[in-house]
Amino acid sequence: MTINRDAKMPETQSGTEVYSFDPLVVKSHYEIDYIHSYGQDSEFFRALGKKKLMGSKCKKCGYTYATPRGHCMMCGSETEWYQLPNEGRIHTFTTCYFGSEEFLSETPFNLIMVEFDGVDSLFMSRLVGADQEDMKIGMKVKAKFRRNQKFSPTDVYFVPL
């Protein structure tokens, strides 16, 4: 044991950005990398690399999902993987001229909900190759896949058919 009455906290060169003195407002930085598991949704993201769009089908009641889920919301049973058609229609759309900070540099971009024949639920995606004025509900669209997979839902996107 050492008792040192002259001990000092080390002084450093780093400082704090101050926006205002009264009230005192300072910059507080925060950054983190997550270890995000796709869990039971993993197959969807892997399949995009093989240019396959995978949804789910309930083993028990047969309800089909364009956006996959491991269990059926209608009956609670387990679902199985189910390949969706590559072509669908615009169920609804928008063009975002502003966005969350992460996507602000990509504006304007189009969001669409896609409906597929014979599939009970929808799929949200980006539409490229069309302006806001070009998009119409019911318009036929086709899935395309990024060559360099990012394991993100934007590995698939749609273009007008």
Partner: peptide, 22 residues
Amino acid sequence: DTNFDYPVGGFYTGYYAMMAVR
């Protein structure tokens, strides 16, 4: 949903805009 919705361009005004269009 941070698996399927947020990464596509997560923006609540965008979601509500799609509902309004429909």
